[in-house]
C-alpha cells in the first residue's frame, strides 16, 4: 500500500518550499511535482491503482487546468477512499473554502503559508485514516 504525494502548483518557488517542508516533516521524501492540473491528471490516470494511496496538494489558480477543473476530472476514475486532496491556496475567500470543503476528495482547505507543523498534523490525520480502513478490512 504505497503512498504517492503529488504537488500541483504553477509557482516554482512554492514547489521548492513544499519539497523542503515535506522533507522536514517526514511526510514524503520523494514527492512528484506538476506545474498545472493537466500534467498531474495525466500522470494519475496512467498510474492509478486501487491498492495504492494518493495525496494531492492542489493549488487552485493555475493556467491550463485549474484546481476546480482537476477535481471535476478526478471524479471520472479515482476513488475517494484512496485519493485524498489538500487544497493549498493563497486565497482566503470564504466561497473558495466552502466550495473546496463540499468536494468528496478534499480532506482539508489549507490557506498558504503552510508550515512544517501543518504537514505533520496532516500526516497524522492520514495515518489515522489508514488504520481505520485497515480495521474495517480485517474486521
Amino acid at each position: 500500500m504505497a503512498l504517492h504525494t503529488l504537488i500541483v502548483d504553477d509557482d516554482p518557488v512554492i514547489l521548492l518550499i513544499m519539497k523542503k517542508l515535506l522533507e522536514k516533516s517526514d511526510f514524503d521524501s520523494s514527492p512528484l511535482f506538476f506545474e498545472n492540473g493537466l500534467t498531474a491528471l495525466n500522470h494519475l490516470k496512467e498510474n492509478y491503482v486501487l491498492n495504492d494511496r494518493y495525496v494531492v496538494m492542489l493549488d487552485i489558480n493555475m493556467p491550463v487546468m485549474n484546481g476546480w477543473e482537476f477535481l471535476a476530472e478526478l471524479e471520472k476514475f479515482a476513488d475517494a477512499t484512496n485519493t485524498f486532496v489538500f487544497v493549498v491556496s493563497s486565497s482566503i475567500d470564504e466561497t473558495d473554502v466552502q466550495k473546496a470543503n463540499s468536494n468528496q476528495y478534499v480532506l482539508r482547505y489549507l490557506s498558504k503559508p503552510v508550515y512544517t507543523d501543518t504537514l505533520i498534523s496532516l500526516k497524522e490525520m492520514l495515518d489515522v485514516k489508514r488504520e481505520k480502513s485497515e480495521k474495517k478490512v480485517s474486521g
Binding site: 509557482d11 518557488v13 512554492i14 518550499i17 517542508l21 493563497s90 486565497s91 482566503i92 490557506s111 498558504k112 503559508p113 503552510v114 508550515y115
Partner: peptide, 10 residues
C-alpha cells in the same frame, strides 16, 4: 496573498 504567503514560507 500569493507573494505574501510565499514570503512567509520562505
Amino acid at each position: 496573498r500569493a507573494p505574501l504567503a510565499r514570503m512567509l514560507s520562505l
